[in-house]
Design a protein around this nucleic acid. Structure first.
Lengths: 316, 316
DNA sequence: TTTTTTTTATAAATATAATCAATAGCTTTA
DNA sequence: TAAAGCTATTGATTATATTTATAAAAAAAA
């Protein structure tokens, strides 16, 4: 049994196809066939059920894959140890970012980070929270930026900042006369929200305590970007909520429609999250330090109330 | 980096000598030299400081060895998974046993076990608790039988049985008239104990609350076996304490000198202990089931008070 | 100091193993 | 039924691990 064989098994298990797995591992397909056969012979088991199309893991295979993931992870940590010792921060690093954070946060720290750690090859991908969690767990992402807390034991969180929500209320709206608003003022039925899948939406729905009879079919013009939401709002289709950093981008005229919450302002917690195995921890630390440092200047709210990004089951 | 290379590193780290490590790993010394050099080149570090005699680990080397231990352990668990799936219970299994348990417990279950699991090659070694803990942690033992609780986070415990202490009080001793004795009756200064290193002794010292001024130089005829202790006791040198299973072995005449404790009788907790990595768990489970089953018939005390085998620091 | 012993490193040869290109064989799809 | 898509097999090639023999260095003994 070699680490290489285990890597091959993981690749085939993932792609359910020897040919594709071979491409991904940069060897030819016969190499995979033979090495995996060799491992199967050595252990005297079948890892894959090749009669099924696409190929499937056997029962032992599933357990073996889990352990193989473990071993491969732990073996990668050897390089980690060496890097840490040398103070070297570099290598490929795959970062996931949720859509509602991407456009505002990325420009703030990216330049800073790549200048400070030029040897890190950052690969950033915009993904929704569910996809991020999946990919953190299977090792396809090294870390991600998402709204927290996520309440997943296999994912660790390091808070980056608390970002308050700000109401965007067009003139003529019933709340327009109020200088500052309260969570209790909100009514899910006259609010424009981002399309489902964004955890931001779940957070807002949690916030709207007044949702007497929330049902899915009341008003379905939900958008994918805050820019669109603001425009729709201007057209009189309702108010919306923006995360604070997004309010820095809108036009001067539109800024007049911003209504802050009375403190404690509802806010989302944005964290750097990563697999509990803590692989590439030096880079994670470096990212955390850079982002936290940059954001500290931009957000100066003191008193916030954190809104969970996880859709809660209605208790009544 | 290969698992084999990591094994070689572990062997050299352990023996601090390439030649000996080579013997233990069943390869020639140049193989070790070359493979370890190769790993060092690949990681671009020095794992060993070869200028020191005997050879020493570098700082990175120490961290690497720790992680290597991890990886090798996890890789051995692959065979574990396969064995479990096949319901196979076999292979070499190294069991440590403390001296005060060895002669009484071993005959009770050994025959039973090797008949039931003929494919397990049991290698039993008599060791004191400290040596056992060391060897469990470095992987030289798969499991051990010792007095617990040991309060070590890296060692897991599965209780086998509670074994009460019984007083052996020769006629003429001040406690001889009492049919049943109490812990408060005991005086460390008129008791014969096993030589130091046996955790049994530490347990008894914990038990003797009346040890007003316990000092090492009062009476130094401490023995290595209970047999000797009983004989010395017969000579009027003091009383002694025996674990219950040992009292089954002594002569009828001597049995008259046995004085049980009033309930709750002080007792030691005897457990099967093993590394938290839970390697070879099927065999450990099999051992536990066998021993617990056999002992259940032999010890029928209900109410016991467990004495810690760890020497407590005097609080006053 | 010199010699001997012990120990690690190096070199060359050998054995073992991994990989590849080509292709066979099987199954599914068109 | 042919074509396409997969995995397994074969034989050649390359890469790697291991060994034997020996050099080099250091420690121990004479």
């Amino acid at each position: 049994m070699t680490i290489t064989q285990l890597r091959y098994v993981l690749a085939v298990a993932e792609h359910q196809n020897f040919t594709k797995a071979a491409e991904k591992t940069f060897v030819t397909q016969p190499t995979l066939s033979m090495q995996i056969q060799k491992l199967e012979d050595e252990l005297n088991i079948l890892i894959f059920d090749r009669s099924k199309k696409p190929i499937e893991l056997t029962e032992v295979g599933k357990k073996l894959v889990h352990q193989a993931r473990n071993i491969v992870n732990e073996s990668e940590r050897i390089q980690d140890i060496v890097d840490q010792e040398k103070g070297f921060i570099g290598g490929e690093f795959k970062l996931g970012v949720i859509p509602t954070v991407m456009p505002t946060l990325l420009p703030m720290f990216l330049n800073n980070f790549i200048k400070k750690y030029p040897k890190v090859k950052l690969k950033i991908e915009e993904l929704h929270t569910e996809a991020i969690m999946e990919r953190l767990l299977d090792g396809h992402l090294d870390a991600a930026i998402a709204a927290t807390p996520l309440e997943n034991d296999n994912i660790k969180e390091r808070v980056l900042y608390y970002e308050p929500f700000v109401g965007y209320i067009p003139s003529g709206h019933r709340l327009s006369p109020k200088t500052k608003i309260d969570a209790t003022d909100l009514d899910i039925d006259d609010m424009l929200l981002l399309e489902d899948g964004h955890c931001f939406r779940d957070g807002i729905i949690n916030l709207c305590k007044t949702q007497r009879s929330y049902n899915e079919d009341h008003f379905q013009l939900e958008s994918g970007s805050f820019e669109t939401l603001v425009k729709l709002s201007n057209e009189g289709l309702g108010m919306t909520l923006l995360p604070y950093l997004h309010t820095l981008d809108i036009s001067e005229k539109e800024k007049k429609n911003l209504h802050f919450f009375n403190e404690p302002s509802p806010a989302r917690e944005v964290s750097l999250i990563f697999n509990k195995s803590e692989l590439k921890m030096q880079i994670i630390e470096a990212l955390h330090a850079t982002i936290a440092g940059v954001v500290k200047g931009a957000i100066t709210f003191q008193n916030v109330q954190i809104i969970s990004p996880i859709a809660k089951i209605k208790s009544d």
